[in-house]
Amino acid sequence: MDLKEKRILVSLISSVLIMLIYCIYVYYRFIDGNPSLMNDMRFLGKAFLIMIPVAIGAQIIIQIVLAIAFKMAGHDEIDPIDDERDKLIELKSIKISHYIFILGFMLAMGCLAMGMHTRVMIFVLIASGFVASVVNEVLRLWYYRKGV
């Protein structure tokens, strides 16, 4: 497994962990004592809006720590260049993850059309974004290992 694959794997695991930890934190910190918050759209909006910079910040910190760990382990290629193969892999994986997000968006709109609560729509939308991002990382890893 080369450095790029290791980075993708770390990014995949960390994004799943960050999402999981953040959801658990929000649940036990706010929702557990006050379940009516689940119907408060303002609260849900704030919770997911705050999650974006938290996730980005955590990812940056993890990547920096990883780069330092690679350097300490004596790897030469700390920052391997992005060439045509990397761009092709990125394009292919992003294309499929976009399809997944569009599918999730349609599902979310379907929930609204069927008269479900708005919170269901929000959860489906967030879940589809998360699944699309995970699929993107998994596909990138798969393309690197199996070939394009």
Partner: peptide, 12 residues
């Protein structure tokens, strides 16, 4: 002007 991994992938 590419990475070593790309050369490896081409060769294989």
């Amino acid at each position: 002007g590419v990475s070593r991994q790309t050369i490896v992938a081409i060769e294989n």
